[in-house]
Amino acid sequence: MRTDCPDRPHFRLPNGGEIVSRGHLACPGCGIMPAIRFAMKVLGRRTVIVAPACCYAVVDGPFPYSAAGVPFLHSAFEAAASFASGVRAGLDTTGVADVTVLAWAGDGGTFDIGLQSLSAAAERNENMIYVCYDNEAYMNTGIQRSSATPRGAWTTTTPKGATKTERKKDLGAIMAAHRVPYFATATIAYLEDLTRKFAKARDLGGFRMLHLYAPCPTGWKADARHMVELSRLAVRTRVFPLYEVHDGTRFEVTLDPETAPLRDYLALQGRFAEMGDAGVAAMEDEIRDRWEILQRRAASSGRA
């Protein structure tokens, strides 16, 4: 297994056939569907998906359709981790303990309304994989601010002239503080890195979490054809560094490609249109701070 990944992935991807079908309802360019598609190639058919209210719960298909290809349980918005904990307990006590329980939730259902049940499931070290696909706002209800929305972004509840003034929550630090066995970030621009992390999560036990960057053309006022490029630029600008954390203590930057200017990333999105020079400079400072913190954590893990 490679432990690094070049800027241009080799696409040595899992060959498990397609589980997620075509025919879903996602917007063109949506970052969710490539992520779930490749995740399922790694995790295989002996998987149960639990998804709370979120874009994915809708785009998978209305009754009687589903693109998932595996059992799919819709859950209440704030309770994906608790539904999934129950599924785990139910499978274990009915003799099907070899099935993977995969919770797949948006940033609203993870950073905000679902944080309490997520924290509890992490503390109990429930045997599941929890994925947050993060499109940085409530996209399913039409682009409202969440605690995953970055400072300076436009949303319908941080409208023009009053864009978001607070910083985004540090999900990785929150989960690391729970000392979960595995936490990783990933994007669809680096599929080899993404699938390697899903494989690693699959092969570990206990509570495992992936934080996926999921560009949203609709909510970010961006062109659908730029979604992979935006994902790549998010990593290259260190807006969304690729790293993993073992046992809440061992941080490792898994991929650190050649850096790109923040303005390249911002220019492809309408949601930052109001951000002036001072705003861009402040964002650069924040990114640098976060990167230095991550570097220090990685260094103190002996894996800088």
Binding site: S82, F83, G86, R88, A89, G90, T93, A120
Partner: peptide, 15 residues
């Protein structure tokens, strides 16, 4: 809330 959520999940799994 999570107690009922977990019961729902468990029951859906057949328990």
């Amino acid at each position: 809330h999570s107690a009922m959520a977990a019961c729902i999940g468990a029951s859906m799994a057949g328990a």
